[in-house]
Amino acid sequence: MPTKIHPALIGFTALVFIFLVGPLIIVLGAALSDTTYLTFPPQGLSLRWFQNIFEIDAFRRTILTSLQVAVISTFVALLIGIPASYAMSRYRIQLPGWLSTLFVLPVLVPELVLGFSLLKNLAFQFNAPIFLSLIIGHTILILPYVIRVISASLASFDFSIEEAAISLGSPPLKTFFTVLLPNVRSGVIAAFILAFITSVNDVSISIFLTGPGISTLPIQLLAHMEQFFDPTVASVSVLLMVLTVAVMAIVERTLGLTFLAK
């Protein structure tokens, strides 16, 4: 018999979900408005503000930069994060306990502090290119997500399967690609997609690491909002929400959305 819940609590919860979803529906409505100013409910329906995104050079450029940064830093984070997670579950005894703390540090240290420190002590001090600093910052930001998701899928991996393959003569690298990787495939896909969206949405690191010709989409959105109050920002927001829906669909297929509730 399920527990009875007071109707007042159910009503309250319904209000909370209206509060959570309502503002995003308002953004969607504002993006479809045929007016030159932001308004809701939309007056007239039009997709012209979506077209406008691609007519503004700054948006075209920053969308491209954001995608590049997200793809490159996600790949690097997977490339170094998968071996690290593997090492931490397979060779736990060899490695010191502080290593797992080290990999949580990017969550503990405020992103703003990381962004500013990379600007001050990498880009400025060593003349490192801004784009490289952005990649480093984003890779560090998403590394904890990658390690957490991959470690979770490795937790249910039976390492004796791998030993069996090796004792039957399979070389280590081949074993990795043919035995280990297929077993943690869903974890890798979910890690990729969560890391990607985290990078695309990042503000606090990127805000310090923009330079001549280099800026990311969220930073460009902030700059645009300070000057114009037209529906372009709303339509870019809707594009980002479409990306969110795609991400959720993939996470649901690979890990199940309840993974995010842990």
Partner: peptide, 17 residues
């Protein structure tokens, strides 16, 4: 989860409107 995965700029912008 949907709002959580939607960026902070988009969610703050909603309150601007």
């Amino acid at each position: 989860v949907f709002p959580l995965l939607t960026g902070v700029v988009v969610r703050s912008f909603a309150w601007l409107i």
